[in-house]
């Protein structure tokens, strides 16, 4: 990160000049170049954010009930499903992008940011379900039984008792899903062609490959720095719940 920050502030000559050129050649021109491109850079950030948030919400919406059902059911059924999920989570998703492209053509899902959330959610679900299953297992059974005897229905138990107690686990899972969506490249590259719809990863690839003559290191680095700022903010905001999730064990009934 620091190296990217340094690179982004240097002119191309200064980068090639070595240590002797440290005194001169500091510039904000790279940032200028990035921010004044057409369409503007913040557009890519917005697109990535949109897709990221959509993916995270969709994944959590599906993963929480699924993880609850699996964890409570137990037995052979659960072990089989867990095994399948593990295989799916470990599978190199990049191998699927051709098949996904075919689906996009068939159902007209190309050049649609919300449609992009679908494959992202699908690819994130296995890991999300496994993580949340482990989180549900941590909750003492008696807590839910007590709520049951008090007259809570299933959704009421999830809403008032179980999901609030899962807070840290849900936060860490959400961050992981968001990060995956933010950094994802091949599917975004093939599903989006209109430049105003591009997410960050393919947009930055275009910047890198824009000139035939030289790699615009400075501009690329500036894009990296700007693209990382939202992620850093996200981590700062969620760091307490994430650490709490890591050091969990304080829940006693």
């Amino acid at each position: 990160m620091l190296w990217q920050l340094y690179t982004s502030l240097r002119t191309p000559d200064a980068l090639l000049g070595g240590l002797a050129a440290i005194g001169r050649g500091w510039t904000l021109a790279n940032y200028g170049q990035i921010l004044s491109s057409d369409p503007p850079f913040w557009r890519y950030l917005l697109n990535s954010t949109l897709v990221g948030v959509g993916t995270t919400l969709l994944t959590l919406l599906l993963a929480i009930p699924c993880a609850y059902a699996l964890q409570r059911r137990g037995g052979l059924q659960r072990q089989l499903v867990d095994g399948a999920l593990l295989v799916a989570a470990a599978f190199p998703s990049v191998l699927l992008f051709l098949a996904l492209l075919q689906l996009a053509r068939q159902f007209g899902l190309a050049n649609n940011l919300l449609a992009l959330c679908l494959p992202y959610a699908g690819l994130s679900l296995p890991l999300a379900v496994l993580l949340l299953e482990a989180a549900f297992a941590e909750l003492p059974r008696e807590l839910e039984e007590s709520a049951l005897l008090e007259g809570f229905g299933l959704w009421q138990r999830l809403r008032w008792i179980l999901v609030p107690l899962l807070g840290p686990a849900v936060a860490s899972t959400a961050v992981l899903v968001f990060l995956f969506s933010w950094n994802e490249f091949p599917i975004a590259l093939t599903w989006l062609s209109r430049s105003e719809l591009l997410t960050l990863a393919p947009a930055m690839a275009r910047i890198a490959g824009s000139s035939v003559f030289s790699v615009p290191y400075g501009a690329f680095a500036a894009a990296t720095v700007l693209g990382s700022v939202p992620l850093l903010l996200l981590l700062l905001v969620f760091q307490r719940p994430i650490v709490a999730g890591l050091t969990q064990g304080a829940i006693k009934g």
């Binding site: 008696e142 039984e145 005897l149 007259g151």
Partner: peptide, 17 residues
């Protein structure tokens, strides 16, 4: 169980933390 109108005090009390 939700319809039986019984109240149970568990050994671990099961208070919502």
């Amino acid at each position: 169980p939700a319809r039986r109108q019984v109240a149970m005090v568990f050994q671990s009390y099961a208070l919502y933390p």
